[in-house]
Structure formats: C-alpha cells, structure tokens
C-alpha cells in the first residue's frame, strides 16, 4: 500500500502555489489582502487600514476599496480552482512553477457590486463561489462580511475571461 504524503509536504506544496498565485499581484499588496486557506477553501482577508476609509467622519470603508477587495477575492478564487487540479492531481512542480512565475489571471469582463451596508473600520473577509466555469468564460459570486458571516456588507457578481493557451482575437481586453 502507498504511504500517504506527510502533511507538511502537502501543506507546503499548496501554500507555495497560493503564494505564487497571489504574491505577484501588486494591487493585492497595495490593499494588504491576504488569503487564509483550509484545504482548497480560501477566505480573503482585508485587514483594516486608515487609507481604506471613504467617509472619515463615520468612518466607513470606501466603496472603491470594498469593490477592489471583492474583485480580488473573486479572481483569485477562480484562478485557484483552475490551479488546484494541477497542484493535486497533475504534474505540479513547485520549482518549475516558481521559475515560470505566476499563472496568468482571468480578466474581468464585468463586475457588479451591491452595497448592503456601510463597511466598518475593522477587518473584512470575503469568500467567492464559482457558479459557472467554462473553457472561455466564468461567472463568480462573492460576499464580504465583517463581524457576522450571515450579515454581508457587500456582495458582487462578475464575469471573467479565462486565460487562453494561445493568443486569440477576443475583443475583451480588460
């Protein structure tokens, strides 16, 4: 019988892949977003920072910061799911992965945000769900919350263009 892989080996492989995916995105560093991983489940975390504030008198998170956070959570979830098969099932090689750099990210076609209540000046969390993922297009829903996971302060749905193996002539370049 084959011996199961040691847990540290599995964790290191998955965390290396996640860091490679997220680490090179400047905007993620700008907002200070990190990702908590449990198995394949990701939770995006936006630690509170004064620069994320919109109305300083409330104070409340800027709608643009909330939208950016939701979009990052959605696109990383989508890319992560695509990568997961390679990490677990396939020929994933952390060294080659590190050498070749980050996999290409899906491009946002459109992104629609509902603001449900003001974002408070404290950490925010988001989880995204890929509702449809085809060869070319994907649809992702994402919700963000602060104190209570059942009281989201914002939600969004976006459509994404999946990275194609070769250059194509699709008009959407966003």
């Amino acid at each position: 019988m084959k011996t199961p892989e040691p847990v540290q080996v599995i964790k290191e492989r998955r965390d290396t892949a996640l860091n490679a995916l997220v680490g090179g995105i400047n905007f993620v560093q700008f907002l200070g977003i990190r990702f908590d991983r449990k198995g394949d489940e990701l939770t995006a975390v936006l630690p509170y920072d004064q620069k994320l504030i919109g109305n300083p008198m409330l104070p409340a998170l800027h709608g643009g910061a909330t939208a950016g956070f939701l979009e990052v959570a959605a696109v990383v979830q989508l890319a992560w799911q695509e990568l997961w098969g390679q990490i677990e099932g396939g020929p994933f090689d952390p060294e080659r992965f590190a050498a070749e750099g980050r996999p290409r990210l899906p491009k946002t076609i459109d992104f629609s945000v509902d603001y449900l209540r003001a974002g408070l000046p404290r950490d925010a969390y988001a989880r995204a769900r890929v509702n449809r993922s085809g060869r070319r297009y994907a649809s992702v829903h994402v919700e963000a919350w602060q104190d209570n996971v059942n009281r989201p302060f914002a939600q969004a749905t976006g459509h994404f263009l999946m990275p194609q193996p070769k250059q194509d002539d699709d008009p959407s370049g966003g």
Binding site: G63, A67, K107, T108, I109, F111, S112, D114, Y115, G174
Partner: peptide
Amino acid sequence: TATLDLRIDYMRA
C-alpha cells in the same frame, strides 16, 4: 448619498 449598486464593464486594459 450612498452607492446602492455599481456595475462596471471592462472594455480593454
């Protein structure tokens, strides 16, 4: 005012 919703279409990079 507060944003109720905002939909953005990304045409190009």
